[in-house]
């Protein structure tokens, strides 16, 4: 809180984001640091958009946007997730199964994954961070609108 008792310190508004890497146990391929990895071999291609985006968070899984041909329905993938700009950095590793798979018009794929093995406490902490930030922002938002 700032010295004049304002609702929120504007300096707290930093976009939360994730660093994500993925290893497909079923196909033994991976997406790490913006590169594709086939077994032990790292591809040098730089013309592909290999970004992974977290779209939705769920109690026992999540929805991701992944590059094409990363995985398919039923595949088992290991996901490593780290928060960026959170009050405390949270790092999670989870084993998940691809429950839903859909190819998008831009060539990327939307996958829904369910955790098979993960640290449920850490995952709850992460959901709480996002939830708290959502609430903080909504509180500020409604305060300035005065509605």
């Amino acid at each position: 809180m700032s010295s004049d008792g304002d609702l929120i310190n504007p300096a707290d508004f930093r976009s939360l984001a994730f660093e994500v890497s993925l290893h497909n146990d079923t196909t033994n391929t991976a997406l790490q640091e913006g590169k594709r990895v086939y077994g032990k071999k790292r591809s040098d291609r730089s013309d592909e958009d290999l970004s992974i985006r977290v779209l939705e968070l769920a109690p026992t899984g999540m929805v991701l946007e992944v590059p094409q041909s990363s995985c398919s329905r039923g595949h088992r993938i290991q996901i490593k997730l780290s928060t960026l700009n959170a009050p405390e950095r949270i790092e999670i590793e989870a084993l998940a199964q691809v429950e839903q798979w859909e190819r998008m018009e831009n060539g990327k794929e939307r996958i829904e994954v369910r955790f098979l093995r993960h640290d449920s406490k850490l995952w709850s902490d992460l959901l709480a961070v996002f939830s708290a930030r959502q609430q903080e922002i909504l509180d500020f938002f409604h305060a300035v609108k005065g509605d």
């Binding site: 508004f13 977290v54 939705e56 968070l57 939830s131 938002f141 300035v144 609108k145």
Partner: peptide, 24 residues
């Protein structure tokens, strides 16, 4: 969720603001 984005949304009278990634 930068300050400028949230502030602009409030200034413009948007009905609500949802962060990504969101839970359903």
């Amino acid at each position: 969720t930068s300050q400028s984005a949230v502030a602009q949304a409030a200034e413009e009278d948007v009905d609500t603001f949802v962060l990504k990634p969101y839970t359903l």
